[in-house]
Design a protein around this nucleic acid. Structure first.
Lengths: 230, 230
DNA sequence: ACCTGAACACCGTTCAAGT
DNA sequence: ACCTGAACACCGTTCAAGT
């Protein structure tokens, strides 16, 4: 009996194995340890074997992002806009923190795969069904996603050590603030107790609340404008 | 007469030349074309000559960032908080857009040099002297800077082609939206006219206004709380 | 004091060859 | 159909040597 294409040759490499192993590698060793040669070694195979399943390194990286992002747990689609966007923002941040090296690298890499589209679609849904205009919806999701990605990308290198990168060295940071000339940086010096815990979950909440407050203000404005036209 | 250290040997390499040439290289050829070998060639020197002025590539990159950031034009320090932060945000964005490859790379790289400190100090100043609490000031500047850097970093690869990277390919993007299954992505499809001009200056304004509105809300709240205590 | 040359341990990828 | 080996054109950096 002839073996069917899927069932036979359990020993052979397969694209999803390659991508999954690449994601593990990135999380364990850091983004710049993701080399074709290193990945091949982990799969017990010669470097060139990978090129049977992936056209080049760039495509492999895209696939790694898509795999990681597809794991996101989107909130209940029937939430109203404010709890919905709040939960969405936290879900994105949580996902990124599970893959610190990707959190940094995702900026500057336009990821337009299905996973990203599903995330945006969720945001569009809760805003539009809550009465936001199309312009405010597009702008709002854009701002929200930018904030979450930006915040997390700036947070990660300051908290976790990514790959072989330097440890957080909080003491060095403190002495930097201590040595600051108070005449040139009076406010920075006086704010030191606030600034020291440079990136905290509370600051994420603070910014997110500020942002949602701003959106609420926008929603009120357009409602007022609508009722005045009546 | 013995030549003084600064005046003599005009032919010799000097650290500021190395860093300046590195910045030019990055802007002309892209961030990943910044290699010690490539830089050395542009300076008409052998690669190892650079290590006399810079301890390694990492330090060189830090110096390149510091040089670029030190060019920022800070707004009038006597502005009140809202015009001050608005102008600060635009100044940061403008500077980053002058160095597209750096705009992308600055995320995930904690830049704590004098230039960054001056930027933060300006923001702290206008907020505190306008009555914001220390917590709101720290959170506010953090959020603002995060938004500006995040937005610009996401914007650049979609507008300019950075180094040898792919051109913007707007047509590909449009066909991607055209092929989207309308039952799975109803809102994304309906928003297509908004989403298409994916990252625009208007969207930057939209997000910035939202953010400043949120901060204004916060300032009102703390003022109300203060007057109630009286 | 500053620059050089050769070398080491790495990269991604091409190409012709094996099974 | 899938994997291999050798090779090419690159990296950052060390080390001993030149002037």
């Amino acid at each position: 009996m002839k073996p069917t294409p899927q069932s036979a040759q359990a020993k052979t490499l397969d694209r999803s194995q390659v991508v999954a192993e690449a994601l593990h590698l990135v999380n364990q060793e850091g983004f710049d340890r993701l080399t074709m040669r290193n990945l091949a070694a982990r799969l017990g195979v010669v470097p060139m074997a990978l090129y049977r399943h992936v056209t080049n390194k760039e495509e492999l990286i895209d696939a790694v992002f898509e795999l990681a992002l597809s794991d996101i747990k989107l909130p209940d689609p029937d939430l109203t806009w404010r709890p919905g966007l709040d939960a969405l923002a936290r879900a994105i941040r949580e996902l990124l923190l599970e893959h610190p090296p990707l959190a940094v690298e995702v900026v500057g890499r336009p990821t337009l795969g299905p996973a990203s589209l599903r995330i945006a679609e969720y945001g569009y849904r809760v805003m539009r069904t809550s009465g936001f205009s199309d312009i405010d919806t597009n702008g709002g999701i854009n701002t929200l996603v930018t904030y979450v990605i930006g915040f997390t990308a700036l947070e990660v290198p300051r908290r976790h050590s990514v790959g072989a990168n330097p440890p957080p060295d909080l003491s060095k940071l403190q002495s930097l603030y201590a040595d600051l000339p108070a005449d040139q940086f009076p406010h920075t010096v006086q704010l030191q107790p606030q600034v020291e815990g440079l990136v905290t979950p509370e600051q994420f909440d603070h910014g997110l609340t500020t942002l949602l407050d701003g959106l609420e203000h926008r929603l009120q404005d357009s409602k007022n404008a609508a009722s005045q036209c009546r």
